[in-house]
């Protein structure tokens, strides 16, 4: 079974701080990690390979330093990685990102599954996975919580929706986007880390993908960010120290009064 896992390098969000004056992100000193939700996609792919044999290839679009994310995936057990990096790719929205990833997947040759994380924790759109499927003209099952089986050209999966789980049969090749429930990601092994260090990571740019420069990156993106601002914090927190019985009673009375006032009881 051949599986491709597109991954993204993201800033560790818990470390993100904002420059209050400019409204921009302070990137210095913020660690770049593999999008945490992509780890579940990598794990799901590795498990399918372990049960049925095959190859897991990770790809990532990003600056040269995104190679580190690919090496981390190889350290977990992925077989190979390709970095999609080109100055022309910069500023891509989800449309232009999906296009580059889909072209790369096409060029990697025949495959059975593309497995994506549900979304990236920085952009938080969840649009790239279904976008890749649309570019490749393939079916996509999103929010997959369980891969029951992949056999005879059919993947049976559970798809998490608002009121339960759909059980779907999807003909392969297909795209799946997975949620955390699908599998617990493993940690990289020492041997894996050594293999990752030595791994040869080809770098493909727009030319290798036969994509014109005006179809990728900012130039190929239908959307534009026109304004960035800090969200207004409208709430004034009324704080109650509740260290003793009287304090607790007073705080609880205030909560009950507020709930009554706002018709929440």
């Amino acid at each position: 079974m051949r599986i491709v896992v597109p991954i993204k390098q993201v800033p560790e969000t818990s470390a993100v701080r904002m420059d209050e004056a400019t409204g921009t992100m302070i990137r210095e000193g913020v660690e770049a990690i593999v999008n945490p939700l992509d780890l579940f996609a990598i794990e799901a792919a590795l498990r399918l390979r372990e049960s049925g044999g095959g190859q897991v290839t990770v790809i990532s679009m990003g600056p040269p330093k995104a190679a580190k994310a690919l090496r981390e995936a190889i350290a977990m057990g992925a077989d190979s990685g390709v970095l999609l990096s080109d100055k022309a790719f910069a500023g891509a929205d989800t449309w232009a990102t999906g296009l580059v990833l889909a072209e790369a997947i096409r060029q990697l040759g025949p495959f059975d599954l593309v497995i994506c994380g549900e979304r990236a924790t920085d952009g938080d759109t969840g649009q790239v996975g279904p976008g890749i499927a649309s570019f490749l003209d393939l079916p996509v099952a999103t929010y997959v919580s369980r891969i029951v089986s992949v056999a005879d050209g059919v993947a049976r999966v559970h798809r998490l929706v608002e009121d339960g789980y759909e059980v779907l049969d999807v003909d392969t090749p297909a795209v799946l986007t997975v949620v955390k429930e699908v599998a617990d990601p493993r940690l990289p092994t020492l041997r894996g880390k050594q293999r990752a260090k030595a791994a040869d990571l080809p770098v493909w740019g727009a030319a290798q993908l036969n994509l014109p420069a005006d179809a990728v990156g900012l130039a190929g993106s239908p959307t534009r960010v026109v304004n960035i601002f800090l969200p207004k914090v409208a709430r004034q927190c009324e704080k109650f120290p509740a260290a003793d019985e009287a304090g607790i009673a007073q705080a609880a009375d205030r909560v009950v009064a507020l709930l009554k006032e706002r018709a929440l009881l």
Partner: peptide, 23 residues
């Protein structure tokens, strides 16, 4: 931005070649 909308809209945005903003 339901499980349906978040799946259908990006798929369609690619088909009709237009931009889409999530959430």
């Amino acid at each position: 931005a339901t499980s349906t909308g978040r799946t259908l809209m990006p798929y369609v945005a690619v088909q009709v070649h237009t931009g889409l903003t999530a959430d």
